[in-house]
């Protein structure tokens, strides 16, 4: 679902350009729209779609909203942590059982 939504969101060339600009750093809508061949409302619409796809996130900054890349869309940190815990919990289980065996040998 994430994959399909993200890929379809990036299929549009203007949207891809919006996303690439944010990849260089957070920007408010006004600055983001400068130099793009579409209107500011159109940029806002593109941002809405990118946000729904989990690719960008926004936060208030005074009276405007600042947009930035959302690493959630990439899922890289989750995948990495998942692997860290797999390794760690395997080691935990081995250590618990090693100690439990010792408990039984020395009641």
């Amino acid at each position: 679902m994430t994959n399909a939504l993200a890929l379809s969101a990036l299929a549009d060339p203007t949207r891809r350009e919006v996303f690439e600009r944010l990849a260089r750093g957070p920007l408010p809508v006004g600055e983001l729209a400068l130099g793009l061949p579409v209107s500011r409302p159109a940029v806002s619409q593109h941002l809405k779609i990118l946000k729904a796809a989990g690719l960008v996130t926004d936060r208030p900054d005074g009276t405007r909203r600042v947009y930035q890349i959302d690493p959630r869309g990439l899922g890289q940190i989750r995948a990495w942590l998942d692997q860290v815990w797999d390794v760690a919990l395997d080691a935990f289980r081995a250590e618990v059982e090693r100690q439990a065996e010792q408990d039984q040998e020395q009641p």
Binding site: I49, G54, R72, G75, D82, W85, R93, E97, Q99
Partner: peptide
């Protein structure tokens, strides 16, 4: 298209041959 996509929590369940205390 108003949903936000958050990563699922990492969950692991397993059994160990030891007491809960240990």
């Amino acid at each position: 298209m108003s949903q936000t996509i958050a990563p699922a929590a990492i969950r692991k369940s397993f059994t160990v041959r030891a007491t809960p205390e240990r």
